[in-house]
Design a protein around this nucleic acid. Structure first.
Length: 368
DNA sequence: AATCCGGGGCA
DNA sequence: TGCCCAGGATT
């Protein structure tokens, strides 16, 4: 193995970046702190190719930080719909208002202040300052952790405090004094395109000659995976209530917890009687109830079985179901709402016309 | 079906 | 300080 001395790490990477790195991503054009911030939050949860259209739409709607701050949260959640991790959208919005109100709408330029904003930790703060302003700060996202763990043979799960400390130490040590923005971008690019979790492209990697994992053939063992846990199952009953005009009843999820702040189909315990629920909670008169095929949705920490009761009902002309937390929506209104992806999928299926299943007996068993 | 993710929140 | 949590995509 040819050793790459620590002082050659950054130059090697920068040289690779100049030849192979991506420089045409939307947030790399006019890389202001605001644009880099939004892109980093989106990229925390989603891959580049998926983020691009979301980012473009977001910037078209909120070109500057104050546009975001002045917008209602619902408008932000609607543009985030499908990205997941909706708490991040809420933090983004909340932080924009903080900057508007406490920093005259100017993005702070020191790490301490930036890190105190909701949704921004050390790595995201470092990314904003280095990519947008060229300041010297290390980053340590999932891609960079993988590059370091493999290159320097860092053992242990990166979620462990001691392992994380070691990785941050490497990040600080290896950071160059010049071109830190390009260097950080290069680290992320390398992790995203070559040093991937599965089947890394070591044959094209500039760091391969000195990479510990490569040398030992342990690319698949580093970084060490998170200790596995059993995944519990949960069950819920979704109420798909429609009135004669085709409107659907939605409820807003509580701010904390799953799908926080989003509109969703009303949920109740699987053993509740849907018709009774409908009368009590909405004042709507149920005419007919049919069970639809159940759906399953997997999260990393539990599996959710969603039973679905379809209720044809007569909505009261005005009543409890017309508030900020429970409302009837016409089909045309659904597109502009912040809806969880699985709920959007159910609504698309169940409100689509021409389904032959409208004449089939109500299904009781789970699909698949 | 298993894995990943940067930061918030809470015991 | 050390867990637990979130919602999709990818493999």
């Amino acid at each position: 193995m040819t050793i790459t001395p620590p002082d050659r790490f950054a130059p090697t990477l920068l040289d690779w970046f100049d030849r192979h790195g991506r420089k045409d991503l939307p947030w790399q054009q006019q890389p202001t702190p605001y644009r880099v911030w939004v892109s980093e939050i989106m990229l925390q949860q989603t891959q580049v190719a998926v983020v691009i259209p979301y980012f473009v739409r977001f910037m078209a709607r909120f070109p500057a930080l104050n546009d975001l701050a002045d917008a209602p949260l619902d408008a932000v959640l609607a543009l985030w719909s499908g990205l997941g991790y909706y708490a991040r959208a809420r933090h983004l919005h909340q932080a924009a208002r903080l900057i508007r109100d406490q920093h005259q709408g100017v993005f702070p330029q020191d790490r301490q202040t930036i890190e105190s904003l909701p949704g921004i930790g050390r790595s995201t703060a470092g990314a904003i300052l280095s990519l947008a302003l060229g300041q010297c700060h290390p980053i340590l996202d999932g891609n960079v952790r993988r590059v370091f763990a493999r290159c320097f043979g860092v053992e242990g799960w990166p979620g462990q405090a001691a392992v994380q400390a070691r990785l941050w130490g490497l990040a600080e040590q290896l950071m160059p004094l010049e071109r830190v923005g390009a260097y950080n971008q290069a680290l992320m690019d390398l992790g995203a395109t070559l040093c991937t979790r599965a089947r890394p492209g070591c044959d094209r990697c500039p760091l391969a000659p000195s990479c510990v994992a490569r040398c030992q053939g342990r690319q698949s063992e580093l970084p060490q995976a998170r200790p596995a846990k059993p995944v519990p199952r949960r069950e819920t009953l979704l109420i798909l209530a429609r009135d004669p005009r085709g409107a659907v009843l939605l409820e807003r999820c509580p701010p904390a917890g799953i799908w926080g702040g989003l509109w969703s189909l009303p949920q109740t315990a699987p053993d509740r009687d849907p018709a009774q629920w409908c009368r009590e909670r909405t004042g709507a008169e149920p005419l007919r109830v049919e069970m639809r095929p159940a759906r399953r949705h997997s999260f990393s920490h539990f599996t959710l079985t969603m039973r679905i009761a379809e209720i044809w009902a007569i909505a009261p002309p005005r009543g409890v179901a017309d508030a900020d937390s429970q409302r009837w929506f016409s089909p045309g209104e659904l597109a502009g709402l912040g809806l969880p992806a699985p709920i959007r999928s159910i609504l698309a299926d169940q409100t689509a016309p021409s389904n032959a299943d409208s004449n089939q007996p109500p299904a009781q068993e789970e699909t698949k």
